[in-house]
Amino acid sequence: MSGIQESIVIRTVVRIMVPFIQIFALYVIMHGASGPGGGFQGGVIFGAGIILYAMIYGHKEGKQRMSDKLNRILSSSGVAIFAVTGISCLVFGGMFLQYGVVPLLPDNPAVVSRLLIDVVEIGIGITVLAVMISLFFDVSPPETDEEELPASEEAGQ
């Protein structure tokens, strides 16, 4: 991949494109309510943006955008958003994930439901993007300068 990484054209194009990809991803997540798309697709696209960046600029640059720690927090908190939404419905006396009972807008359960669906979609999106990025970082070949331990020393416990 080193050939691609040194191409200035590609580097520039990627640098310009990635923000657009991410905005598109956010659009996909939010648009899920009324059209094709949703948290999952948006999350994948968002992740793909960062993966693309990391592929071209190297893991180190990529991890500056999405550090391991942030990744871990994001992947946990995405599911947490979902589950907490569900549990908050319990608190307001409904069943698990019964959005309508949350008294944000008392008269219009459909709108509340719509809002919470968006929240849930965002939660899904966050987890998906975090996991996709971490999958990529872990599966792709480690770059020589950031490798801490050679394979042979890790064994033996």
């Binding site: 992947s75 994930l97 439901s113």
Partner: peptide
Amino acid sequence: SGVGNIVTALLANYRGYDTLGEVTVIFTAG
């Protein structure tokens, strides 16, 4: 559900619990 996309309504509302499971699967894979 207040959404126009029936698939989304199903995904996040009627069968939202499946989706919670799905997110958990992803998390587990990660």
